[in-house]
Design a protein around this nucleic acid. Structure first.
Lengths: 209, 209
DNA sequence: GCAGTAATTAATCAAGTGTATAATTTCAAA
DNA sequence: TTTGAAATTATACACTTGATTAATTACTGC
């Protein structure tokens, strides 16, 4: 009986593969399905190897969550581009309600992780960081927008508008990703942009991109 | 060595207790912590008993989710009361962004269950039912509101406004329940009502309750 | 009070979990 | 080509999980 052949990989590649395999497992089988054996199988290695790159399974899952959430925010933020604030905000919104950010697989992974936040301090901290980053981004864009449009741009006004917009985006993202409604015939981007304009008191025409 | 004493209960009471214990476990320990033994312990029975009232653990969890989600929607809907449509809508919104609907424990349970929807068909169906009920309620109230205010109340307009409002409520509910932001100094109810009025094109004054 | 029935407990099982460790294999350096 | 160190595999262990079953207990109807 011969051992299976293998080839060595750098630490970065292996960690990356293991994290990707973890996210795949979580997406398809849920968090409970992301067992050490399942992850190892998907990564094309044996279970024991995981412990060489991650102290324990908890660390692996936490690392997977961190990569996932930072990638997600990065992808959404990449929609900003440059230009005037309202154009950047529009870009962020468009990116937030379309694939690959708004997507069933993404939602599944997000949901699975979210469920652990309350009972797992490590996950809670990771989650807090990611959320904070996104909220800060929105708050800044909202602030610039309000200033551009000459509306009330007081600290409190910015904050409240950011909270509401953040909530709207979260909710739309969930609805669209869930795919429960039939969004195929609607222009979700336009709906998102129009309602944002309405909420911020901006001329919707400027938001049509 | 004597056996522990016990007393019999009706099927309804036992099922209820077991479901309550399941929800407690999920809220505090996450879905992974809701083991048969943990649930039995919290319900004050022995593990074997569970199988007398639920075919298997999957059924118990599904039943717990169903009870949870229907209670949640019922509680929110109870905020409606009666009166003109905009008052009922305002009541629903107020209920949605305040305790016990908007609450950390509620969010934890919701999040834990949501994470299973993608990989578990039974949970997916239960989820769909609950969500549909809430969305229908909102769509009806929005429709009445638009008609009351003389705005465009076409089928498509109602549907789009309902989607957006639903998203806003979901997002606000999550944000508030999460407690990440410091909402203590803000009037979240007013923020929710004002932004809803803005989105629907209704006079905010009518929404102040 | 008594008997029978059904609810409940207690004990056990097989399967799957994360983890640990020793035996192997790969690869780079000499 | 050889050697040595590090990466990877294989195997095993202790533990937890959901499920099963027989023994016991509480309660209902007579």
């Amino acid at each position: 009986m011969t051992r299976r052949t293998f080839h060595r990989e750098t630490e970065a590649v292996r960690q990356n593969d293991l994290i990707a395999a973890t996210l795949d497992s979580v997406a398809e089988l849920g968090l409970a399905g992301a067992t050490v054996r399942e992850v190892a199988y998907r990564a094309g290695v044996t279970p024991g190897l995981i412990r060489r790159y991650f102290d324990n399974k908890e660390r692996l899952v936490a690392a997977a969550y961190r990569t996932f959430i930072s990638n997600l925010i990065e992808t959404a933020a990449a929609g900003c581009g440059d230009g005037p604030a309202h154009a950047r905000l529009a870009g962020l919104i468009r990116a937030s309600v379309t694939a690959p950010v708004a997507d069933g697989r993404t939602l599944s992974i997000w949901a699975a992780f979210i469920g652990t936040v309350n009972s797992d301090p490590v996950m809670a901290e990771t989650h807090r960081e990611g959320y904070q980053a996104f909220r800060d981004l929105i708050e800044q864009l909202v602030g610039e927008c309000l200033r551009e449009c000459g509306t009330d741009a007081s600290h409190q006004s910015i904050r409240q508008h950011a909270i509401v917009l953040n909530a709207l985006l979260d909710g739309l993202w969930i609805e669209i990703s869930m795919g429960g409604d039939d969004f195929s015939r609607m222009d979700v981007v336009r709906i998102a942009l129009d309602s944002t304009a309405t909420l911020l008191g901006i001329d919707p025409a400027e938001f049509r991109e």
